[in-house]
Design a protein around this nucleic acid. Sequence first.
DNA 1: CTCCAGGTGGCGA
DNA 2: TCGCCACATGGA
Length: 311
Amino acid sequence: MYLYTISHKNPIDLHGTLFSGQSFMWDNAFSCGGLYAAVVRGVALVVSVQLTGELEVHASSKEIGGMNVPDFIRYYFTDDVESKGLFPEKFSVEFPRVWKLVLPYFHLKVLRQEFFETMLTFMCAQGIGMHLIRKQVSMLARTYGESVSVRIGERELVLYGSPSPERLASLDPLELSRCTNNNRIRAANIILSARAIAEGRVDIEALKDREIPIEDLRNMLSCAGGIGYKIADCIALFGIGRFDAFPVDTHVRQYMAEWFGSEAALRALTPATYLLIDGDARTILRPEMAGYAGHLLFHCWRREIKKLQSF
DNA sequence: CTCCAGGTGGCGA
DNA sequence: TCGCCACATGGA
């Protein structure tokens, strides 16, 4: 293991709500007591925040995806995204009550996670509670992911990476459904998507082209079975780093109605309604950062209003 | 028991 | 396009 002490510009707190996206849904990457551990691109990472505010990082390799560890960590935790610029200037004046509520959530970071890992975890996140989603993701990793054993001082940790498309491609839906809440339709859809990637029928690098308008990207991603607008936007936001993607789920719909008076958000979440709410959000938030800011609002809503404990 | 959870897709009117 | 319903499980 290699040890690094990494300075960063923006506040990063590994406690509680801090982690965004499926980072803390991803049970293999846990963040308890200020500690974060995960396998990223085959490299084991154990990260903790020091009293000085710096990050202490144990890594099983000096390099991750062609980057040195400190650079990768700052990239992965989106240290380049300034929390000050997430909301429009006038937001605090137009919505003072929401502004006051969301202020404590500015330390929350949306992570730049892997494409297939993001697709897999969010395909498991349909109409069920966070608890069950984590259970599926955890079981998928322990059953089909590659394990990496690491030693941090006296602590022995066994971490599991996200399953590769190749590993899942050859599975039978009935077998995989043991890890997908017994939902065979979901398992079959995951296998189909895994095959498409493993066989090179989906060009992931092409999807990462920043020139693609977000509505085009959403349409391209939602072509696959089991992926609608919401999951497509989640993949774009968390798996491609498209912070302009604004996933609308049951919680977002609720706060768009309650906090911002969106008429569309009062109606059932059909595809047409989805696009209307998306449009409303872009008039309230900075379009290019709508998803990132929306994610702070998402956790704020769940914790402060809905009083939910789970992340 | 009922309702809701980080939805999607098939169906009929 | 819109309203139901199945898919599956678990917690409040």
